[in-house]
């Protein structure tokens, strides 16, 4: 018998056979079963035969040179494109790239990207250090904003000025505000409250202007207006008229102030740094520690009264 173009050898017995399927590997069931029995239980898919990185099971005594022997190129210092701050020559990076050195100046240099997070002119793409104090301040700001929004929602619900269909929406919004974990989420909820599709609308169309103003001004609602109006109008309550198109009750997102400046950024703004090893005031100005006796702690160290006042002025000047 002459082998046809589709014939192939059986992977178990080697006999040439004509497969009835394109992916047939064995000439018949006996060979398939025998091959299955012979397959390694600990390596059923045969990875040990295929992978090059599996261990070569030879004894240590007979081990020959490894593939990375005898030549192993050590990693040396390499030239970077960063200029030396003193002479402008390109800096050399340490073998692992964590530090820099200037050949002509023969000094070690802080990599620019290490000090960049403390520079005053930060952009959005640059990393910056977030201290525990920063995290605490952010949490406080979030809690304050949530308080403002919840108070607004509570007042709206208690005022009786909401349309009956908007009351559950306001309750849902209050739950979401309580559960919010970021200022971004509060911004989203505030925008949602202002969206006509959300369904927060007044009970009477003539209340629209007052509601929006109250929300945007972030003030207590003027309950005097409520006393002056007749809210026992059951006819209005049961009115199927959805009211004016897109009436809105704005909820402010609780933003009141820009992020405050930190001690670290104030130090950088003044061109100072802190030395933990210095006694007394630990401010380093032009590489010289102040050392004046002090009792003013700031984040990361102690400073004297004069430096404390200057830093405080920097911070308040930024936030004013």
């Amino acid at each position: 018998m002459t082998a046809g173009p589709a014939d192939r050898p059986c992977e178990h017995c080697g006999a040439v056979f004509t497969p009835r399927r394109s992916d047939a590997r064995y000439c018949g069931s006996p060979c398939r079963n025998a091959a299955g029995r012979a397959r390694s239980r600990s390596d059923p898919i045969g990875s040990a035969k295929r992978a090059d990185k599996t261990p070569r099971l030879i004894t240590a005594d007979t081990a020959g040179p490894l593939t990375w022997d005898p030549v192993i190129e050590p990693r040396h210092a390499y030239r970077t494109a960063e200029p030396c701050p003193d002479c402008g020559e390109p800096l050399w990076a340490s073998p692992r790239g964590t530090w820099r050195a200037c050949g002509p100046c023969k000094v070690l240099v802080v990599p620019p990207t290490v000090s960049a997070p403390y520079s005053v002119a930060q952009d959005a793409t640059q990393r910056h250090v977030v201290s525990q104090r920063d995290r605490d301040l952010a949490a406080i700001d979030l809690a304050r904003r949530k308080g403002i929004m919840l108070a607004q929602l509570d007042q709206l619900a208690a005022s009786g000025r909401l349309h009956a269909e908007a009351v559950p929406v306001a309750e849902w919004l209050a739950v979401q505000v309580r559960n919010a974990t970021s200022g971004t989420r509060l911004d989203e909820l505030a925008a949602l409250a202002a969206d006509p599709k959300a369904g927060i609308r007044p009970r009477h169309r003539w209340q629209l202007a007052a509601e929006i103003t109250a929300g945007q001004d972030d003030q207590d609602y003027d309950d005097q207006d409520l006393d002056d109006q007749d809210y026992e109008d059951d006819q209005d309550l049961d009115d199927d008229d959805p009211g004016p198109p897109a009436p809105r009750l704005a909820i402010t997102a609780g933003r009141q102030q820009a992020p405050t400046m930190t001690w670290a950024s104030a130090l950088t703004a003044n061109g100072w740094r802190l030395s933990r090893l210095a006694d007394g005031c630990q401010v380093l100005d032009d590489g010289r520690a102040c050392g004046t006796e002090t009792a003013h702690p700031i984040t990361g160290g102690l400073v004297c009264g004069e430096h404390y006042a200057a830093l405080a002025a920097t911070i308040t000047g930024r936030t004013a």
Binding site: I58, A60, G64, I72, P74, R75, P95, R96
Partner: peptide
């Protein structure tokens, strides 16, 4: 027991040092 290819710590450290880099 089967054994792996063996080498000394110095040679292994040389290999580690040649590939130990952020990239």
């Amino acid at each position: 027991m089967t054994a792996l290819p063996a080498t000394t710590l110095d040679r292994a450290l040389s290999r580690a040092g040649s590939i130990w880099h952020p990239a």
